[in-house]
């Protein structure tokens, strides 16, 4: 264990803990922007700089492991100047998009700009044209909104192990670019971790204001993993799917189906009642009608060919209980062991 002081408070943490984690463990808040709980520290925003007694240079709290006996200060005029400068520089060419930005209301940049009271920027630099191509057509990249925190790049490389996007270019011209679009699985991990509106879901534009959306937690119905997700619901319609960091088996990750495959919910083509084919045409029917028909046909097949002539396939998209009941039904009611399960049904 290592003991240090942060803003005069003594903290004891295991070796290898970062200053940021140590501070959080005693509820000292250090501003962060690029840091994300699920990834190794990136160190791009420099908002988390702290001073360490005896060392001339401020250090980034998120990337610096603690040392025994160090005295850390998280607030000083110098640190405030640096943090303000970091934000001001980001704002040099950041568009005034908040009113039309899908992230507005839950944007980290917006929050920090507010917190640090940045009401004017005395710096300027010519704008550069950036390419807005992105790895996945399901995601829209707004290069002018991108602050280059590199959470997306890190998530794609580190969480997904894919590396479809990277940084290219030098200095002010550096940009997040697609290095290998073929590799991209459209998983939306990058979208999930982006702290700003630089990446937005592109199934539809202008999603609805975040503060009007209700987030309904549920389990993804696509496969047996059981990923936890939130349906973003506005006026009774699912507008988008998000996930909560650190929650469930998926910890915030989703795959392309879970994250983007929700449009079927409100689809016009979706079946809402059973259909029975009569005279070569499907006709709407009641559940009672449909179930009676199926039961009659099964009984007839069983009587004529025996129960072995019937088999059942169930689905990973059902719950355990449903799957249990299904096999019980096949064995006890139908009388066959011909029951299987396919993850893709």
């Amino acid at each position: 264990m290592v003991t240090l002081t942060i803003d005069g408070k003594e903290v004891t943490v295991p070796q290898g803990t970062t200053i940021l984690e140590a501070a959080r463990s005693v509820d000292i808040k250090i501003p962060t922007l690029c840091y994300h709980d699920r990834m190794s520290p990136i160190g791009s925003c420099r908002m988390c700089v702290v001073e360490i007694e005896g060392f001339a240079h401020p250090m980034a709290a998120c990337t610096t492991p603690v040392e025994d006996g160090i005295e850390v200060a998280t607030i000083s005029d110098r640190l405030t100047r640096i943090r303000q400068d970091s934000l001001k520089l980001i704002l040099v060419n950041h568009p005034l998009d908040c009113p039309v930005c899908d992230k507005g209301g839950e944007c980290l940049l917006q929050d920090l700009t507010y917190e640090f009271g940045i009401d004017q920027v005395e710096y300027s630099a010519a704008k550069v044209d950036r390419d807005s191509q992105y790895a996945s057509p399901l995601i829209r990249y707004w290069p002018d909104r991108c602050i280059m925190c590199l959470r997306c790049v890190t998530a794609c490389q580190e969480i997904k192990g894919i590396g479809a996007i990277s940084v290219k270019g030098d200095g002010y011209g550096a940009q997040v670019v697609t290095v290998d679009a073929d590799k991209c699985q459209s998983c939306g991990e990058c979208l999930q971790v982006c702290p700003t509106g630089a990446l937005t879901e592109d199934l539809s534009r202008y999603k609805g204001r975040t503060w009007l959306i209700e987030r309904v937690p549920t389990t993804c119905t696509y496969c047996g993993c059981g990923c936890q997700l939130e349906l973003n619901v506005q006026a009774g319609r699912v507008m988008a799917v998000t996930a909560q960091d650190g929650v469930g088996v998926n910890q915030g990750s989703l795959c392309v189906k879970g994250r983007f495959g929700y449009e079927f919910i409100n689809s016009d083509e979706r079946l809402t009642t059973p259909l029975i084919k009569k005279n070569g045409k499907f006709e709407e029917a009641s559940w009672d009608e449909a179930l009676t028909l199926v039961a009659d046909k099964f009984s007839a097949i069983k009587a004529e060919h025996g129960p072995g002539a019937i088999g059942g396939l169930t689905s990973a998209r059902c719950s355990n209980e449903e799957n249990y009941l299904f096999q019980k039904f096949m064995r006890a009611a139908v009388g066959t062991n011909n029951v299987d399960h396919c993850a893709r049904l």
């Binding site: 420099r46 270019g169 200095g171 002010y172 550096a174």
Partner: peptide
């Protein structure tokens, strides 16, 4: 500048 941190890049 590699562009990977805010203050130096901008």
């Amino acid at each position: 500048s590699c562009g990977k941190c805010f203050l130096c890049r901008i």
